[in-house]
């Protein structure tokens, strides 16, 4: 009854009906509801919808940071398809994400298995592993920069004291070691999140299913692989997608730790967009790169979700 009257009341003709007063109240409520939504709509419209439309317009324009802009058709896109440096940064970003994501998943799962049961004192271990998650990306980058500095960094001192290296290594001299350093910094900051989500997934598996598998003589590894993992596919897919997109969007760590070096070999996609827009001051071209990058993210994400769907069914 209330459902029906609400539906009718939202139409303006209800005032003449016997329930007219109710209709007027309902309409006043609807107007008030719209008014209450207005700030959110204004913000999302102005700072999200408008920029999305604008980025398409900007991508087909010559749009310097200062001075007039004008339409140039698909020139920015044509330039993009022949711009080796942009594709190099896309490829680098994809490889980086493909390194980070499995590591975050596997290490997060191992830790989730360790801290899963609420033994006494486990809470402290969970908290310690999770704490870096709440540290900002920039702060985490400074921490790792300070830790691994060949002069004042404690990692170099530790490695030499353990005779693992003759002298403190300079991580930023090669692309491989610079990337390794960023991977470590990102793992440190994100594994705790993966651990908590996967722990939640593990705890959501009904106990009797696991016990039934054990009774049937399945080993622990077998139970994990064939029973637990398929039953927590939602958590795994969430961590994988979240981590993968996060890794594709990495900027702070590269900007602060490697500065894109050595020789611009560690310029991530967002870093390339940043450089194009705010160093080269070519906002139109930066928008074209952004749009192509966004489409690549969407394609990769859909592909990844498909992958997990087929694994769980």
């Amino acid at each position: 009854m209330t459902l029906v009257s609400k539906g009718i009341a939202s139409r303006p003709t209800t005032e003449r009906r016997p329930g007219g007063t109710y209709g007027r109240v309902a309409r006043r409520k609807a107007v008030l509801g719209a008014a209450l939504m207005a700030p959110a709509v204004l913000l999302v419209g102005g700072i999200f919808i408008v920029p999305i439309v604008m980025s398409i317009w900007m991508s087909v324009s010559k749009w310097p940071l200062l001075g007039p802009h004008h339409l140039i058709g698909l020139d920015n896109y044509l330039r993009l398809f022949n711009d080796a440096s942009v594709w190099r940064s896309f490829a680098f970003t994809a490889i980086f994400a493909l390194i980070v994501t499995p590591l975050v998943l596997v290490l997060g799962l191992v830790l989730a298995l360790i801290v899963q049961k609420g033994r006494p004192g486990i809470g402290v271990i969970r908290t310690a592993i999770f704490a870096p998650v709440v540290v900002g990306n920039a702060a985490a980058s400074y921490i790792w920069l300070a830790l691994t500095d060949p002069g004042a960094g404690l990692v170099g001192r530790l490695l030499t004291d353990l005779h693992l290296t003759g002298a403190p290594p300079n991580w930023l001299l090669s692309m491989a070691s610079a990337t390794t350093l960023v991977v470590l910094a990102v793992l440190w900051k994100t594994i705790g999140f993966s651990m908590i989500v996967l722990m939640n997934g593990l705890n959501g598996i009904p106990n009797d299913i696991v016990e039934a598998a054990m009774m049937d003589g399945a080993s622990r590894a077998r139970t994990l692989w064939s029973v637990k993992l398929p039953l927590m596919m939602d958590s795994i897919a969430f961590v994988a997608t979240f981590t993968f997109i996060g890794a594709l969007l990495t900027f702070d760590q590269f900007y602060i730790i490697t500065g894109g070096g050595p020789d611009s070999t560690t310029v991530s996609a967002v870093y390339a967009i940043y450089n194009t827009a705010f160093t080269q001051l070519n906002l139109g071209y930066a928008s074209a790169i952004s749009i192509v990058f966004m489409i690549l993210i969407l394609v990769l994400t859909v592909f990844q979700l498909r992958l997990f769907q087929s694994r769980s069914s």
């Binding site: 999302v44 102005g46 700072i47 999200f48 408008v50 920029p51 999305i52 604008m54 980025s55 900007m58 997109i245 969007l249 900027f251 967002v270 967009i273 940043y274 827009a277 906002l283 930066a286 928008s287 952004s290 749009i291 990058f293 966004m294 993210i297």
Partner: peptide
């Protein structure tokens, strides 16, 4: 849906707005 599009890819037009 706004959660689907990361800030990083529309930062340039946001700056202009």
């Amino acid at each position: 849906a706004a959660a689907m599009v990361p800030f990083q890819v529309i930062v340039t037009p946001v700056f202009i707005v």
